[in-house]
Design a binder for these strands. Sequence first.
DNA 1: ACATTTGGTGACAATTTTATGACAGTGCCC
DNA 2: GGGCACTGTCATAAAATTGTCACCAAATGT
Lengths: 235, 235
Amino acid sequence: MTATTILIVDDEAAIREMIRVGLELAGYECLEASNAQDAHGIIVDQRPDLVLLDWMMPVTSGIELLRRLRRDELTRDLLVIMLTAKDDEDNRVQGLDVGADDYITKPFSSRELMARIKAIMRRSTTREQEESIEVGGLKLDPASHRVFVDTQPLDMGPTEFKLLKFFMTHQERAYSRGQLLDQVWGSNVYVEERTVDVHIRRLRKALQTDQRDCGLLIQTVRGTGYRFSTTGVCA
Amino acid sequence: MTATTILIVDDEAAIREMIRVGLELAGYECLEASNAQDAHGIIVDQRPDLVLLDWMMPVTSGIELLRRLRRDELTRDLLVIMLTAKDDEDNRVQGLDVGADDYITKPFSSRELMARIKAIMRRSTTREQEESIEVGGLKLDPASHRVFVDTQPLDMGPTEFKLLKFFMTHQERAYSRGQLLDQVWGSNVYVEERTVDVHIRRLRKALQTDQRDCGLLIQTVRGTGYRFSTTGVCA
DNA sequence: ACATTTGGTGACAATTTTATGACAGTGCCC
DNA sequence: GGGCACTGTCATAAAATTGTCACCAAATGT
């Protein structure tokens, strides 16, 4: 496995330096950018595994960049930890809303930073899965961010896609709504568990074609949650 | 399912109040304490599911209490989220070291608090990982939450599943209806003992396939209860 | 053999848990 | 600004599960 690459985006060189030293000591590969423009270029170009993104930056703010990243198919799944000024609560909330995976309040200890990075990385095991997965006539291609049923392309929202991707990379196993929220939505969001039901429904619906109903692959495990399985339940 | 109970420990009544209102609106059961002494008593006595612990408190500080909790076998696994003043970085780090599960920086939004609580609770209930058990053509897989007879999946209700799981992990031994209620239903519910009979019946029925009748594995021990056994019924 | 106990079953109504359709808020694109 | 695509929440409908009963059958005891 190749080393994890982390992009540090902060307009203060001193801070970048400090972080970089710590991370490299911990065995991470580091990239740096001092503004959102450069950062975006590096992200597209080098495809880091994680981005530490400062909130307050001249020209284009961190939140702007994050929004942009989340909009783009290619960078939608990129892990982002944002760095906020210590009392900037509003931004923090806003950041999580926009889709940061976590945030750290400045100033922070390297120990704390390490803990958060590890936690984030641990959570997203789906990260390396870049080959397309095919199961029972259903094909998901992470690269093009598309799903097919027998060569016929399907249409679904971002959340449904992530949900399906998670299921296809974790087949034959029951997950509670809470676990799905953790894995698909991220553990820092506060949404009702019932919301999962709704997205499951949307996903099931999206998986239906005239030919075949791949929605059946998503099974309800009563009292527990859901499961993606190619094995039908007995008649 | 009984409501989640949260203990709020803060020396400022106003803050406690504010938090309590929010949590109760969200459906949590709340307890309050204004100092570490009281808090400890309540924890031991009422056994809350989670503690929101303010760091700065007169007499005994939050960290002191946390340390004490972590030392004691009974409270070692208690979930603790600490509340820190916004620029109190040292305490934060120290707190995570001592074993807080998470921290929130004051001031925080109720939304953020909710997110953290939910995330923590989810994480904690997720730590079960078990091997699948196989006995005489009957296989129970906790991960996928399914049961097979010779690769053919079976269908049964949650209670039947739990009952079967208990039997398969406690084979060759007779259990009274009372013991089964304790183990499978939980020791603090009151249901008729005869209810066990009905679920045994449902389970036996669910274990029947065209090929084989695994219901026979569940034997009646007259005057005592039931037993799961692979050996044929003795004379 | 008869009276009594204990377990097996099918039926139910109450409860819980899911599925679904509708809606309102947000951000994006034209 | 208006139209669109997505999201998270609700309220409500639809299903599945549950605890009890009443009643039958089998086993036990005398």
